[in-house]
Design a protein around this nucleic acid. Sequence first.
DNA 1: TCGGGGGGTGAAATCGTTTTCTCTCAAGGC
DNA 2: GCCTTGAGAGAAAACGATTTCACCCCCCGA
Lengths: 350, 350
Amino acid sequence: MQERSDTDGAERGRSVGRPRRRATIGDVAAQAGVSKATVSRVMNASRTVDPVIAERVRQAAADLEYRPSAVGRSLVLGRTETVGVVVPDLANPTFQELLRALSRAAAADDYRLLFADSSESPREEAILAADLRRHCDGVVLAAPRLPAEELATEVERLGPAVLYNRPGEPGSGAAVDYAGGILALARHLHELGHRQLVFVAGPSTSVSNRIRLAALREFETGHAGVRLQVVPGGVDFAAGYDAAEPVLATGATAAVAFNDLVAMGLLSGVHERGVDVPGQLAITGFDDIPFSGYTTPPLTTCHTPIEAAAHACWAHVRALLAGEEPPPEVLLPVELRVRASTGGAAAAAG
Amino acid sequence: MQERSDTDGAERGRSVGRPRRRATIGDVAAQAGVSKATVSRVMNASRTVDPVIAERVRQAAADLEYRPSAVGRSLVLGRTETVGVVVPDLANPTFQELLRALSRAAAADDYRLLFADSSESPREEAILAADLRRHCDGVVLAAPRLPAEELATEVERLGPAVLYNRPGEPGSGAAVDYAGGILALARHLHELGHRQLVFVAGPSTSVSNRIRLAALREFETGHAGVRLQVVPGGVDFAAGYDAAEPVLATGATAAVAFNDLVAMGLLSGVHERGVDVPGQLAITGFDDIPFSGYTTPPLTTCHTPIEAAAHACWAHVRALLAGEEPPPEVLLPVELRVRASTGGAAAAAG
DNA sequence: TCGGGGGGTGAAATCGTTTTCTCTCAAGGC
DNA sequence: GCCTTGAGAGAAAACGATTTCACCCCCCGA
């Protein structure tokens, strides 16, 4: 047996020219003088194969530099061992960390990640998710901007799909407790004596923006003397920077920004206008991104446990893929981080 | 024709229970009363199909919510229309931007990206790249940490593979002109009167670190009176922060950091020790990441055109996938960004 | 009227795996 | 010595698409 083909051997040399055809399971089988079934068994560490033959197969595979085709495998197995991730904006450190943690969690289960950035566009979001889904076993949508009803049908249609930061909606895997966090910030500012607050809002398509705003409104009605104003903002540094003028125009003594990026932009913007922070204006962010502790002054913000979020989402995905009942949605607790941008507890003002 | 099966119709209802089996091309063919070949032709917009039949097929596909399986397609086509990307550390804004731009470029060609983070480990790098490669048509390795020889065989073995920031090595698609950039920084500092320089180094596995160091050494020997010292650093904020003490111990008047992250950490570290920047110590970074203009003081650095890098790499990938001769390596020009952390041109010191 | 040509369609091969299912053979129990 | 059992291995049928090839049929020109 084991008739070797000379032409194959020749073609397989390190000819730099054309990319040599990759060896298939059939090639290995022929080279080792066994059937494809046996090669498959060896490759998948099945116990029912003669050690001598197994070794011969392994040798042949090594000689031919055989790498099993994931596509062929996926077709018969019915799964790709890949999941897709769609984020609204990778420029946001929050989503970077999420992607990283998610990729790590997936890797631990021998899964890999398909990535897409929707640029904050709900339209793109649905299209990208559907496209990704065709190539993998499931998707996680990070802070999707789609309206609730559309999102629900989208989740239904996508099959295994889990949501991050869409609390209470079908498919939700984990969500940050924005209400709790924003309340903590508001209380902190209130204790410092601030009564005139201004919220630098995020995108109107963002559910978490609505949650933040609702929490602030509730705080306003619950505390006599507190007055809340709102100025449009956005999601990034530039948005905060551009909001400096409108914010100062409100006459508020404290600004609650949609997130750290916006807060840092605002900080930079008011700084340029000679406004003292926190003396004339206190500023808070959200997320506690890596740089927020190193701005001047350092930013008071809420720390969100992104790694925990990623793990919760992955656990959800895994359950769905295994056909099991997914765990209940995880509401991630946030932690107030008081820094100098609000003057700390000591530098309170009237 | 068009005999419809009631059981199928029933099973296909929106039963929330088990995930209904996805319709295949065969189902659509049966429903429309045509062959699979015709369905395929309609799906791929082949001109040679009767408009009436085409419409019937489209209707059937819509009814069944048919989504062509990418896996089946990939198997017969021999390509997945997916490429993998391996980065050393997604926490670095440079790689975030690269990933984003690359994903956008890929999307424009109807390709998607598989993502992996090697955590700066050369071991992981090779493993991840090989794993990714099995699932896609090619890979791009961003600033790989593997030694040149190993990397070369790895690139050879991986098939279509392009390198970012490994100038001159086989498979290189694009690389930043670190030598030119670091020289511009050195000249800038020299003009300001600085003679005692200290380099806060990056990882020893980083080729671009060696390039930076070599350029500085060359500058040192080429300019009488200039003295260069080196302290170990790293790749992130913490590394720069921890380098504060060693840097100050050298007595140097200007510190050239491996990148912006390290520079910002250093800035923070020396700031805590009451050192004035740039009065007592000038600091430069590299990359011009989004925040570098907003530290206190803002960071003098070199801007690197990441988007151009991504496009060059993608062009390389695309050529490789099409079996064409890839374009020559692109050496990306950098731009000096003078800001307050070196005192600008005016605040020169002796 | 016949031949040729071309447009529209379907049957079947193909891609690279995994997994029944079948078969062989050797060992062990009665 | 016969029958059962089980282990090891191969042939073949999936999986879901694309594409070659052959076929049919209609129309046109001679």
